[in-house]
């Protein structure tokens, strides 16, 4: 295979995680493949000018599409997700560098 085939699948761990979450929800039947493609397409289309030639924005569209679909399907609201993100950032800020960051749900 050529060198170009050897490029990395995910640029960062969070990209891999978003991908795996989407796959799991598809398997669980939370949404269909067609619903996903339509939603992802819509997110990409919305932000099209910011999608650079490098395609670095790609998994950010995945994350947005996933957050929207989850809210739409009544799994978790946008407010719920925003609150949890803030909790994670706060947990990170109080965790000494090098220690695993953990969040205890109230």
């Amino acid at each position: 295979m050529s060198q170009r085939d050897a490029e990395r699948v995910f640029a960062a761990p969070w990209e891999a995680k978003v991908f795996a979450l989407q796959q799991s929800l598809l398997d669980a039947g939370v949404f269909s493949a067609t619903e996903w493609a339509e939603r992802l397409g819509a997110e990409i289309a919305k932000d099209d000018c910011r999608d650079d030639a490098e395609g670095t924005a790609y998994f950010r569209y995945w994350l947005k599409a996933l957050e929207c679909l989850i809210a739409e399907k009544g799994v978790a609201s946008a407010d719920n997700l925003t609150g949890l993100s803030a909790d994670w950032l706060a947990a990170a800020a109080r965790t000494p560098h090098g220690k695993p960051i953990e969040l205890t749900l109230k």
């Binding site: 969070w14 995680k17 994350l63 989850i70 978790a76 997700l81 993100s85 803030a86 994670w88």
Partner: peptide, 13 residues
């Protein structure tokens, strides 16, 4: 912020 959003998703799911 991106990592936190992904963690939030993982937590809730």
């Amino acid at each position: 912020a991106l990592e936190a959003r992904v963690r939030a998703l993982e937590t809730v799911l």
